[in-house]
C-alpha cells in the first residue's frame, strides 16, 4: 500500500505557567492510501494534538510529518493554508457549519477555493442530503448537520479526511449512520479517513487502530476483519 502520510518522532510540548505539558511524545506511524484509521484514547491522551499537527493547524515542537514526499512540518503559514485547502478535510464534533448558508452552499464554500473539487450534487446525494440540500442548518437535525460537515470536507477531494470525535455530539443511532457514511466515503473515493475518538467500540470498524495514552502511542494494531459500522454497539 502506498504511504500517504508519514509521522516521524513527533512531539509537542508547551508551557502552562511553570509546568511543561508534554501533549505528544515521540509519535511515529504511517498512513496508507484508502485506509480507515481510528486513533483511540481517553481525554488528554494527545490524539487531538496529533490530528491538529497532521492537519496543518498546529506545529510540533520536534519531529516531522511528510505528505507523500513533502515535509509539511517545514511549511510556512502560506503553504500550510494551501495544504489545508487542497490536501486535507476536517470533520468536527460540533459540525461548525455556517448558519446563514444552506446545506449546499456550505459545501460550495469549500469547493470554491480548492483545486480539484468533486461534483457537489453527487456528494450531496452520497451523504443522503439531496432532498434537503436547500435547507438551512437550523432546519436540519444534528446528524444531518454532521452530514453537511462531511460533505463539505469530502467535496474538496482531499487526500486525507480527518475527523475529530465526529459522533461525540450525536445519539447512538445517528452516530452509527455517520460512521457508515464515513466508511462509505472511504471505500467509494478511496480516501484515507482518520477518526479520533475515545469510544473504543468504534475501533472495531477500523483497518488499523492507533492507541494513545498520556501523549504517547502505546499500540498500533491492524484489524484483520473490520466490522460493519452497523454492527457496532456502545
Amino acid at each position: 500500500m502506498n504511504t500517504v502520510l508519514r509521522v516521524q518522532n513527533l512531539s509537542k510540548h508547551y508551557e502552562m505557567g511553570e509546568i511543561t505539558v508534554r501533549a505528544l511524545e515521540d509519535a511515529s506511524f504511517d498512513l496508507y492510501e484508502g485506509e480507515f484509521i481510528v486513533i483511540l484514547g481517553p481525554s488528554g491522551s494527545g490524539k487531538s494534538t496529533l490530528l491538529n499537527i497532521i492537519g496543518g493547524m498546529d506545529t510540533p515542537s520536534s519531529g516531522k510529518v511528510y505528505l507523500r514526499d513533502e515535509e509539511i512540518t517545514d511549511f510556512n503559514e502560506k503553504r500550510l493554508t494551501e495544504y489545508r485547502r487542497n490536501k486535507v478535510g476536517f470533520v468536527f464534533q460540533f459540525y461548525n457549519i455556517m448558519a446563514n448558508l444552506t446545506a449546499r452552499e456550505n459545501v460550495e464554500l469549500a469547493t470554491e477555493i480548492c483545486k480539484t473539487p468533486l461534483d457537489i450534487d453527487r456528494i450531496m446525494e452520497d451523504v443522503g442530503l439531496s432532498e434537503r440540500k436547500n435547507h438551512f442548518p437550523s432546519q436540519l437535525s444534528g446528524g444531518e448537520q454532521q452530514r453537511v460537515a462531511i460533505a463539505r470536507a469530502v467535496a474538496k477531494n482531499p487526500e486525507i479526511l480527518l475527523c475529530d470525535e465526529p459522533t461525540g455530539a450525536l445519539d447512538y443511532t445517528t452516530g452509527v449512520t455517520i460512521l457508515s457514511l464515513l466508511r462509505k466515503v472511504n471505500k467509494e473515493f478511496n480516501m484515507t479517513v482518520v477518526v479520533i475518538t475515545h469510544n473504543a467500540a468504534i475501533a472495531d470498524m477500523a483497518d488499523r487502530v492507533i492507541k494513545m495514552r498520556s501523549g504517547q502511542i502505546i499500540d498500533i494494531k491492524t484489524n484483520q476483519k473490520p466490522i460493519d459500522p452497523e454492527r457496532i454497539e456502545w
Partner: peptide, 8 residues
C-alpha cells in the same frame, strides 16, 4: 472554520 477549510 474557514481557516480550517483553507481560507487565508
Amino acid at each position: 472554520s474557514m481557516r480550517v477549510l483553507g481560507f487565508t
